[in-house]
Each structure stands twice: as structure tokens, then as C-alpha cells.
Simulated scan of single mutants.
Amino acid sequence: MRLPIFDSEDEPEVSMSPLIDCVFLLLIFFLVSSMTKVKSKDIDVDLPVSEAAVKMKPDDKQAIVGLDNNGSLYWDGQPCSANFLMEQLRATSISQPDRRIRVDMDKDAPFGRFVEVMDACQFYNLSNIGIRTYDESYNKN
């Protein structure tokens, strides 16, 4: 049995198209997974409408405090107690006092709960606070 002998002109080639396909698939995967990370902190609330709101880009480094229509509290999209929220605000004031805090509040939430959250932020000297309002482009499903 004779083995085929390659001429010096016939060198094996590596096709680059499967490698390019893999790179694009990885790029798409990381883009999609990073987009869902920002959305996962949102809670299901009916946001108030504002005519004078200042539009800001979503920031994945901001802390999100949520209040639903029953007055339940959320920290970064996860349900929490008032004590846990106070601990998180205290830790934030120590480690990152300039960190932005976004309040997502249902328009039917008890106003007294909102006042408690704002009082806690003031107590811990957190002043970079924003209230999320309804935005047609961000809230469309």
C-alpha cells in the first residue's frame, strides 16, 4: 500500500469561515446576556407618568429600590425587608457614597413607604437619588 505523496504546491489549508461564525455567535451571546442583566433588576410596577422627567441612560452600577402597589420593598429586583434595605443603604453610604440610587415605585404604592425610603437615604447621606417614571420607549413590551 502506497501512501499519497503531496506535492510542494498542495499544502493543507485551514478554513476561516467556521472560526468567524463562532466568533460572531459568541459576540451575539455576550451582547444578549449583558442586556438581560440590566433588565433583570426591574420589578413589575405601574410607573407614574411625568411630563418633566429628565431622560437618563440605564446604568448597571446603580442600586434599585422598588416599591410595589402593596408597599413591599425590593433591592435590585429581589424582595427584601425594611431592615435589609436599611443595611444595604448603610453599606452603600460607607463604600460608595456617590452611587446612584433609582427608586422604582408603583403609582398606587403607599406614599408613607416612599417617605420611609427617602428618609433612610437622607439619614445615610445618600443624595444621588432618582425616581423612575414611565417612558414609552423603555417600557414597551
Rank of each mutant, 00 (worst) to 15 (best):
R113M: 06
R102H: 05
D10F: 08
S127K: 07
V117T: 04
V115F: 04
L19F: 09
D119E: 10
C80Q: 06
G112L: 12
D106Y: 05
R102N: 13
M118T: 13
D59S: 10
A52K: 07
R90T: 09
M1Y: 07
N125K: 06
L3H: 15
C80W: 01
D10N: 09
I20G: 01
D7F: 08
S127L: 05
K37A: 15
Y134L: 13
F111A: 11
W75N: 01
I131Q: 08
P4V: 11
L27E: 00
W75K: 04
E136W: 04
A109I: 02
N139H: 11
P79V: 03
E13W: 10
S127Q: 12
V45Q: 04
S17H: 14
D106E: 07
I28T: 11
F6M: 14
Q122G: 07
S34K: 10
E116L: 05
R90L: 02
Y74G: 04
M56H: 13
Y124G: 02
I94K: 04
S33Y: 09
D98V: 05
D68W: 01
E13Q: 12
D135H: 08
M16V: 11
V45Y: 02
L25D: 10
S17F: 14
V49Q: 01
R2W: 13
D76I: 00
S33A: 11
D21Y: 08
I20A: 15
G130E: 09
S40P: 06
I64A: 15
E87C: 00
G66R: 08
P58C: 11
I101S: 04
G71D: 04
D60R: 06
S34C: 08
L31T: 02
V14L: 10
S15W: 13
F123R: 12
A63I: 15
A52R: 06
D98Q: 10
V65Y: 02
P97D: 09
E87W: 00
L27S: 14
C121Y: 07
L26T: 06
K57P: 15
F30M: 03
P4N: 11
D119F: 05
G71P: 15
E13V: 10
K55R: 13
A82G: 03
R132C: 04
F24M: 14
E13C: 07
D104F: 00
Y134I: 01
K57N: 15
N69W: 03
N69C: 05
I129Q: 11
A120I: 05
M56T: 00
L73E: 00
M118G: 09
S33P: 00
L67T: 03
C121Q: 11
R2C: 10
P58I: 08
L27G: 02
A109Q: 01
D104S: 08
M56G: 12
A82W: 12
D106R: 03
I28H: 08
N139S: 10
R100K: 11
D135K: 07
I64S: 14
Y138N: 14
L126F: 06
S93L: 07
D98Y: 07
Y138Q: 13
S95H: 14
L25Q: 08
I20P: 00
N141E: 14
E87K: 09
P97Q: 03
K140W: 09
E11F: 10
C80E: 02
I94R: 09
D42A: 08
P12A: 12
E51P: 06
F30V: 11
S15L: 13
G130K: 05
I20F: 14
A63T: 05
V117C: 05
T36M: 12
